[in-house]
Every structure is written in structure tokens, then in C-alpha cells.
């Protein structure tokens, strides 16, 4: 298959982390939560707060793999008028300010399918998106979006899970690029947490099968947990815990209170400080 060159941002970022000798912090927020303007302010400030990779949720009405916190984020964004095209607009605005921090869009297939796969890939690449995570597209459906993505120069980041055994792992990794996202628990986002030992064993298992960087997420709820995960994996992915800070910044009517974005950034700074503390302990 003739694949186009990807943006290289994800590779460069993980190489830089390796040189610094530390794990990275991948932050997740839903695009347009709680509204476009506030979301824009949050996302634009993430790199300065210490996010190494930005994962941006594309809101969907039926987010089957997400727990209550991210479900509610999707609902807020949709109620405020978020659309897939506006997610790309948000990335475009971000790219005008930051040409280095990788942006990965995460979501479900139907809005992309509805938008049109080829048109979506062209628009997403033009906006400055570096990778996609699409929860409901396992390797069995690679022809839908994964192969067209790789061909177009878009990284396709696959989820590996505790149920992905050694027989299946090579299948899951075969068309994965950018990094591998290890889902550390069986379940939905933001609920259960894995033990440090389980994460370590899983990362070691993955490393036997791939040279790609490994991000670990689902259930990382505290800066301490983020540090522990970033110490064994290449990056810790934190989502629901950050979205909780958005919720905390809403007033009684659900409107963003002044200073919401700043409080989210404060929390990301706490996470980043812990994740970065690894270099001192090594």
C-alpha cells in the first residue's frame, strides 16, 4: 500500500519525550464542552499547562464506550451546537497558535461516515489533525476508515485491551500507527482503575509485540496515578478527571463560570508536574 507521509508530530513528540527521559501526558477533553468558546480557551491553553498530546473528543449522541462523565460532556457539547465540522474548526484555530503539539481526534464512526470518509480525512488533515481513535472500528472493519487514513497520511491509533490476547494482539497492532492506546481496564472511561502491577505487565506484553509508543488510559483519576502510569508506559491518558474540572466550573444553570478554563489548566499543570517528576526519581 502506498501510504502518504504523516504529519510527523506524534513521532517527534514521543522522540522528544524519550530524550527528556520522561513519560508524556495525553489530555482528553470533548470538543465544544461546555460550549465552543470555552472549549477553545481550554484547548489553546493545554500545551502551556503541560499537555504533551491533545486528545479531542468528537461528541456523539450514543457514546457506548464512555462512562457518565464523558457521556455528559458529549451531551453538553451537542446541546451547545457542536458539529463535526466545528471540531475541525477548533483544530484549525489551535494550529494557528501551535504547530508542534499533536492532536488526536477520538470518537465514534457514525458522524465520520455521515460526513464522508474521504472528505473527512482531507478536511481533518488540512485542519492539522495528526491521528484518529475511533472506538467502534476494530481491525475487522479496517477497510472503512483505518486503511484510507493510513493511505492519506493520518495516523490511526488503535485501542488494545485486557481482552486482546497474544493471538489477537498482532492483528490489532498491524495497521496501528502513531502510538498504541492501551485501555487498562475492562469497562468504560472514568470508572474502574487498574493496579500498577497490572499496567506494568500489560505494557511489557505490548512491548514484546511493538516498537510503537504506548499510551495507557481509562481510569487514571489522580495526578499520582498519572505519574505511576507514565513511569511504565510512554504516556498516561487522562480524560474523565479533567472533564470533572469542567463540570466543577459550571454554574447552577450549566453555564461556564468565569475562570473555568484557568481551573482546568491548573489541574492539568498538577498532572503534568507529577508526570514530569518521574525524571527526578529515575
Amino acid at each position: 500500500m502506498s501510504a502518504a507521509q504523516d504529519s510527523g508530530r506524534i513521532r517527534r513528540r514521543f522522540e522528544a519525550l524519550k530524550e527528556e527521559g520522561r513519560g508524556g501526558l495525553v489530555t482528553f477533553v470533548t470538543a465544544g464542552d461546555p460550549d465552543y468558546e470555552t472549549s477553545r480557551e481550554i484547548v489553546l491553553g493545554l500545551p502551556a499547562a503541560g499537555a504533551d498530546v491533545i486528545e479531542l473528543g468528537m461528541p456523539f449522541s450514543d457514546p457506548m464506550a464512555d462512562g457518565p462523565v464523558v457521556q455528559a460532556a458529549s451531551q453538553r457539547a451537542l446541546r451547545a451546537g457542536m458539529k463535526l465540522a466545528k471540531c475541525l474548526e477548533l483544530v484549525r484555530e489551535f494550529r494557528a497558535h501551535d504547530d508542534d503539539t499533536p492532536i488526536v481526534l477520538m470518537g465514534y464512526y457514525n458522524p465520520i461516515y455521515n460526513y464522508g470518509v474521504d472528505r473527512f480525512l482531507a478536511d481533518a488533515l488540512a485542519a492539522g489533525v495528526d491521528g484518529l481513535i475511533v472506538v467502534d472500528l476494530p481491525p475487522e472493519e479496517d477497510e472503512e476508515l483505518c486503511l484510507p487514513s493510513l493511505k492519506a497520511g493520518m495516523n490511526f491509533i488503535r485501542l488494545a485491551t485486557p481482552t486482546t490476547d497474544d493471538v489477537r494482539l498482532p492483528v490489532v497492532l498491524s495497521n496501528t500507527s502513531g502510538f498504541v492506546y492501551y485501555v487498562s481496564v475492562m469497562g468504560i472511561t472514568g470508572t474502574k482503575s487498574a493496579t500498577e502491577d497490572a499496567v506494568r505487565a500489560a505494557v511489557e506484553r505490548l512491548r514484546r509485540h511493538t516498537d510503537l509508543p504506548i499510551g495507557v488510559g481509562f481510569g487514571i483519576k489522580t495526578p499520582d496515578a498519572a505519574r505511576a502510569v507514565a513511569a511504565v508506559a510512554d504516556a498516561a491518558v487522562v480524560g474523565s478527571a479533567i472533564v470533572d474540572r469542567i463540570v466543577a466550573g459550571l454554574d447552577a444553570d450549566g453555564a461556564p463560570a468565569p475562570g473555568l478554563a484557568g481551573k482546568v489548566h491548573d489541574y492539568v499543570r498538577e498532572l503534568a508536574a507529577e508526570v514530569r517528576s518521574r525524571e527526578e526519581s529515575v
Partner: peptide, 20 residues
């Protein structure tokens, strides 16, 4: 064998469920 009726059907599920 992949569960398709024409273009319809398929297996659009999260990886956690796929082995099951």
C-alpha cells in the same frame, strides 16, 4: 463470513468486545 448483508451488518464494536 464477515457478517455483511450487502453493505449492511458488520462488527462495529469496541476492541474489548471483539474477542467475545
Amino acid at each position: 463470513e464477515r457478517g455483511h448483508f450487502g453493505i449492511f451488518g458488520g462488527r462495529f464494536v469496541a476492541e474489548t468486545l471483539m474477542p467475545l
